[in-house]
Design a protein around this nucleic acid. Structure first.
Length: 476
RNA sequence: GCUCCCUUCGUCUAUCGGUCAGGACACCAGAUUUUCAAUCUGGUAAGACGGGUUCGAUUCCCGUAGGGAGCGCCA
């Protein structure tokens, strides 16, 4: 038998941003397809016209692009396929696998309430299952319900969850076509996955019971089911369901917080999946190694500390120009860096680029990197941090004063020349380098911490350095 | 309430009957150092509980407890 081409899909409903759980689901689908020469499709599940919005569609596409998860072909809009869904519902009706139900929403509510009061599962009782059409009340548009077998079981052979068995008596006759003729979620999914030739459905476990229902629809249609893979959910740091309080932010929020897409990808792929002791994965490696048997079954908690550690790794490893590009995207999005975004021109770019090697060594996020780069963009006289002030003591100022002629004498203003001159001066003066470097650091950056002091001097330029020192001496 | 799923260091996880239960993040200590990082070295830290099965269980089975998901004319 010829090996079938793998087709996966990501099918978000556009009712909000692309949250972190969705991003991981998309990543898994993308990796699985890429690793097998298959295709990764996108379907917008917008059958709920009330809640679906166009901005949400844009936000989701934007989030996927930023994460580097490119899809094949045009995204399918589920709402445009209503006629085809209806056709499937009618086929089910025709072959006796579905029936009209004339219960009103109020009746159904009453039915559920009654069942709950008696301690029975709140499922539809199937009262219209075998009633003749002649019983139909006048002027009521019926829904179409699936005639789920009452006996036997529905088995979902899940690539992650294993063999999960549902008793058919626990599955109720779900509505597949609403009274207004539009399809419900489960019908639309089955029809679309079938028509899109989807071979693997990788999604959150919250859909596991839907897999049983969808199986029944597929069986009723005499269609082969896709392979299901239900991955565990992501929880917040407190173990509860991820909410806005913790990490259930849109991926755009992570971008604004200064995370790199490759860091987020690496973090997400390790949430629920592993490959031995490996922690750092290039995209190519992820694609090569990702597979379903290594996906675990327990929920994972979202841990910002680990994400940050990975982000720091990828920032250090990144090419300076790449980093600059990511920073420029991030600048206007973060509250903290927005003021800088407005005046970030060619001069600022050049300075940042020059200082990048020293800056990227010590930042966990891009926002932090920009914060550490504050001295590059500050105007004289600098604002001195409160804790740094004490280094500008009389002794500190004396150190600075002694340094001025030394710096003035330097001809070739670069890191090596500056370092040589300052170290020679320290030796002559019989002072430890730290004694000199700290007051100097404060004068030049306004802080007690910064990248290497010689790099700071070099990037700032001779005139600016002498000016900043002079500001301090003048003040004393 | 009913159905299904889960349970190894604080967190993410490895282990597919025999291991000093490994790695990573975090934390602690040391080295390095012009600060802070980075880096390197070392350390603390785990099989929810109770029964089985077995020569031997973290691993297989049952139960208990705890957690999660689902039970819409939402997706």
């Amino acid at each position: 038998m010829a090996k079938m081409k793998v087709v996966t899909r990501f099918a978000p409903s556009p009712t909000g941003f692309l949250h972190i759980g969705g991003a991981r689901t998309a990543l898994f689908n993308w990796l699985y397809a890429k690793g097998r020469g298959g295709s990764f499709l996108l379907r917008i599940e917008d059958t709920d016209r009330e809640r679906s919005t166009e901005p949400a569609v844009e936000a989701i596409l934007d989030g996927l692009k930023w994460l580097g998860l490119d899809w094949d072909g045009e995204p399918v809009r589920q709402a445009t396929r209503a006629a085809r869904h209806r056709e499937a519902a009618e086929a089910l009706l025709a072959n006796g696998r579905a029936y009209h139900c004339y219960c009103s929403p109020a009746e159904l509510d009453a039915m559920r309430a009654g069942a709950e009061a008696e301690g029975r599962p709140p499922i539809y009782d199937g009262s219209w299952r075998d009633r003749p059409a002649s019983d139909a009340p006048k002027g009521v548009e019926p829904v179409i319900r699936l005639k789920t077998p009452r006996a036997g079981e529905t088995v979902v052979d899940d690539a992650v969850q294993g063999r999960v068995v549902f008793q058919n008596k626990d599955l109720d006759d779900l509505i597949i076509l609403r009274s207004d003729g539009t399809p419900t979620y489960n019908l639309a999914v089955v029809v679309d996955d079938h028509d899109m030739d989807v071979t693997h459905v990788i999604r959150g476990v919250d859909h596991l019971t839907n897999a049983a229902r969808q199986s029944q629809i597929a069986i009723g249609l005499d269609w082969e089911r896709p392979i299901f893979a239900h991955v565990p959910l992501i929880h917040g740091p407190d173990g509860a369901k991820l909410s806005k309080r913790h990490g259930a932010l849109g991926v755009d929020a992570y971008r604004a917080m200064g995370y790199l897409p490759q860091a987020l990808r690496n973090y997400l792929v390790r949430l629920g999946w592993s490959h031995g002791d490996d922690e750092i994965f290039s995209t190519a490696r992820m694609i090569e190694w990702f597979d379903l048997p290594q996906v675990g079954r327990s929920a994972a908690r979202f841990d910002f500390a680990k994400l940050e550690a990975l982000n720091g790794h990828y920032i250090r490893e990144a090419d300076d120009h790449d980093l600059l590009r990511h920073i420029e995207v991030m600048l206007p999005e973060s509250e903290a860096t927005r003021p800088l975004a407005a005046r970030f021109g060619a001069a600022e770019r050049a300075r940042l680029l020059a200082a990048m090697p020293g800056l990227k060594e010590r930042a966990k996020t891009l926002v932090e990197l920009i914060d550490n780069a504050g001295y590059l963009f500050a105007s004289r006289p600098l604002q001195i941090d409160t804790g740094a002030q004490k280094l500008l003591s009389p002794e500190g100022l004396a150190v600075l004063a002694a340094l001025v002629p030394v710096l003035q004498r330097i001809g070739q203003w670069d890191t090596t020349a500056i370092e040589a001159a300052v170290k020679a001066h320290a030796e002559v003066a019989g002072q430890k380098l730290g004694k000199i470097a700290q007051p100097l650091r404060v004068a030049l950056t306004g802080r007690t911490t910064s990248p290497g002091i010689f790099d700071v001097l070099a990037v700032l330029g001779k005139d600016e350095c002498l000016g900043r020192i002079d500001d301090r001496l003048g003040q004393g």
